[in-house]
Nucleic acid binder design. Sequence first.
DNA 1: CAGTGGTCTAGACCACCGG
DNA 2: CGGTGGTCTAGACCACTGG
Lengths: 251, 251
Amino acid sequence: MDNPLSETPKGQLSARIRRDIEQRILLGEWAPGFRIPMERELMETYGCARMTVNKALSALAASGLIERRRKAGSFVSQPLSQSAVIEIPDVRAEVEAIGQAYRLEVISRQQRRSTRADMERLNVQSPRQVLAVHCRHFAGLRVHAFEDRLIDLVSVPDAAEIAFADEPPGTWLRGHVPWSEAENRISALNADASLADRLGVKQGSACLQVERSTWRGKRPITAVRMFYPGETYRLIAHFSPKGDVPRREPA
Amino acid sequence: MDNPLSETPKGQLSARIRRDIEQRILLGEWAPGFRIPMERELMETYGCARMTVNKALSALAASGLIERRRKAGSFVSQPLSQSAVIEIPDVRAEVEAIGQAYRLEVISRQQRRSTRADMERLNVQSPRQVLAVHCRHFAGLRVHAFEDRLIDLVSVPDAAEIAFADEPPGTWLRGHVPWSEAENRISALNADASLADRLGVKQGSACLQVERSTWRGKRPITAVRMFYPGETYRLIAHFSPKGDVPRREPA
DNA sequence: CAGTGGTCTAGACCACCGG
DNA sequence: CGGTGGTCTAGACCACTGG
């Protein structure tokens, strides 16, 4: 059968088309940069009207998974895209936005079989190879953040080859791995001796901790703990109800 | 002219219809609970096809501003709705979700002409009447959060009559005032003597501070500072790229 | 300049659910 | 049961832009 949709239709046609294409992208069949068949082809593939295909593709474009250009066609996004700039800030951009020179210092980088603690952080049951990276992000001479990251090498095998000498792990991941879900957990804590030393602050001073887990479908990609000196750092999120993108009024 | 859209069309028709309806709601012409004209009426009002109206209304429903029910019609949402439960948590629900008894204690409540500091917090230029509320949220016997809130009585005149004896200000506002934009600023700080006393923690212990400003259009509604004991509180946000609502896979 | 997406139309059928 | 929204169709014209 030509039609790649499941034989027992459930739900809206446009939603099923969307899921079908989404799966091809998330499972890697259609890699970043791949040119998606155009609407007039897909409408034959799925045997439906062009508006129906358009609805599916428009939704995918709105969610950032694909990018569309007239005349050129529709392309699978490079994972970086503009996705969720608010929720997952780029550390380097963050530092440079405040006019400071960015510098990355990798403290340690270790590939290992996951410990019990690692598996808990990644929320997985089975042992696997993981990459643990500790690094510091500098804004000028000041420490902007300390990062404690764990990468699932099953989901991201390419990471094993990356030294992260120049590009921060978070930036590299955003540029190479598409993600579908993430979770931030934010808390405050008093810096212990070790953390105080790493951040260059006094022991006991308040720090902001952002723990973030990222998944592609059900597979974990990475779990990271970012520590910021609390006095200076502010996590800012601008938003509208139900995830609306704030719209600018035409002048 | 019957057509309520601006005479010089700019942008997509469906988007202009959406903005037109959105304005009626945000400016209060169509109050919460109001039944919006049905699609077949609106399509005559705006002189366009039903699909075009449907696109506008679907977008409004997706953003939570209206609710739609077959046979019944489309209604302006009660502001509470499900809007942005992640970004603007309800304190009482938060406490009860962890199985604790919720209690609200209003420390002070003062209506006054805005001070210079008030105007800065609300980000307005002109003086106005404001309501300043300090209160504590208890989870059982423990202080869950200390709240320092400022309400713009120009935008929310009804608030002047509310004692907040039982319902927290944030909950009341969510249930009575529609908002279109908000911003969270998150940081960590060491509790000074005053804050430590209010939160029932040791002086110097790390606390999480969430500053939030809320607007309806360009008018400020409220500015609030919430302080949480950092060791226990965690602000959790689950999200997908570009504001997608996380979808559940059909089993 | 022609291929592609963006949008709209006029109509249709259906599912749902309130009266 | 019938009114309402939900969705899809088959087609059209247009705007943009890449080749």
